[in-house]
Design a protein around this nucleic acid. Structure first.
Lengths: 240, 240
DNA sequence: CGTCCAGTTGACACCAATCAATAGAGGTGG
DNA sequence: CCACCTCTATTGATTGGTGTCAACTGGACG
């Protein structure tokens, strides 16, 4: 039996993926920053002046409606570029999303103007940013399929299968066990479900010996079964 | 009373938006092509060798699940770049989505390698492609909010309010009336609803004097009311 | 005149939201 | 150390929105 606190967290200790770290740290004046859990990294519509590269911890992008309910549109893990690119509005750049730290974060910050200059000078960097955006679009599209056409169980299965790939090394197979510090409230807002119902779904999946989510740890008990349930095809997560 | 067939279609006759036509036609060897309604422009995972710029007609991107149900993830109107960029897989480029013509289409086709060369030579073009992707991501994200957290009525209202902006000129106000040749089957698959339920929702909106969708034409009867219902803020559709 | 397809309507079932309540873990301060 | 609080997780009862199944309409077209 594993203790569920204080252990080294595989999601945290893995090195960032090179494919998503498309710049040389020295060349670009990187500032190391920390954010505490629950803090706000960017707010929808607010001017942004830097690019954030997530090195450690988990963050979420979300949008809230007037009614008070919110939709988590992205989960960011170590290795991800956060909230890039911003949307240009006149001579300002404004954030397209609100981003919050789900855990304590370690972040590399690069000034946006510096970054843009580098992109102008280095077509390769532009191309890589484009690739980054492609991957992002692909993930958003897959989430759209989840919310639109998958059952609550299917969505949940899909969510944790995707995360397994994303926290793994890009060249290795996805792990059957990984750390995930997201609360059920966050996950339910990502899946468009109520927290109560997500809880019930997780119980069903656990009883069906498919998936166990508990104490900040995810255990994929039956990958084949989960993949069938979720209609999961990880192709969209890989590109060069 | 307007007839609903054979009339010049405002969605078709408007010129393409310059902001999304970021290349000079002569410089890039553009081939004009036509597709008939229901034909397939690209198929998920298939190699793609060209970039398609939609000049006239409506197209949809969709994904199907094993169960047979499908999710429409994007609607393309005149002025849109279709299915760009593809995902790189080894030395091939593969389509990330399947795209079908909802009506007869007129399309400008540019060979992908030519286009890539142009992007490498012209940082401006790269930047514009990045902007294109940003806008796409913003729309996908907004759809995610719709499917996750808006009611069937809210989603439907949001869908037609967004389309109004997208078929309008970028500098002008969105029209209160526009042509939309999408069947209720397509719309329902875009909204994650059953066709029957969408039909009921449309009736409710019509009876509430908010929105009328009939005979390939959309009438926004009460924009303020619709916007309130949909929690619609068009900011995400505009960028420079 | 028959066929086909999009649109429409009704009856019914069911999945998931809501409301309400409790339990457990972690933190804080007395 | 314990009392108290907050936050997350959990469970039950009930409601309601939406899907499903089925049937029918109307127009377009041969």
């Amino acid at each position: 039996m594993l203790t569920n606190s204080g252990m080294p967290d595989p999601g945290f200790t893995k090195p960032p993926r090179e494919s998503l770290m498309p710049f040389s740290a020295d060349a670009l004046e990187v500032t190391q920053r920390r954010f505490e859990a629950q803090s706000e990294l960017m707010l929808l519509g607010r001017p942004v002046s830097s690019v954030l590269f997530l090195q450690e911890g988990w963050a979420i992008a979300c949008r809230s409606l007037r009614s008070g309910c919110r939709q988590v549109t992205s989960v960011f893990v170590a290795g991800d570029l956060v909230g890039f690119p911003p949307i240009r509005r006149g001579d300002m750049f404004r954030s397209e999303i609100s981003v919050y730290a789900a855990t304590e974060l370690r972040v590399a910050e690069i000034r946006l103007d510096t970054f843009q200059q580098a992109m102008a000078l280095e077509p390769v960097l532009s191309q890589q940013m484009l690739n980054h955006e492609i991957r992002l679009s692909a993930m958003l599209q897959e989430r759209l399929v989840s919310l639109g056409r998958r059952s609550a169980q299917g969505r949940t299965a899909h969510f944790f299968l995707e995360l397994a790939v994303r926290v793994s090394q890009p060249d290795g197979p996805p792990p059957d066990r990984y750390a995930c510090p997201l609360s059920q409230y966050i996950v339910s807002d990502a899946l468009g479900l109520s927290a109560e119902h997500l809880n019930r779904v997780l119980r069903q999946l656990r009883l069906a010996q498919l998936l166990q989510v508990r104490g900040g740890r995810v255990d994929i008990l039956n990958r084949k079964g989960l993949e069938r349930l979720a209609d999961f095809d990880p192709d969209y997560l890989y590109s060069d």
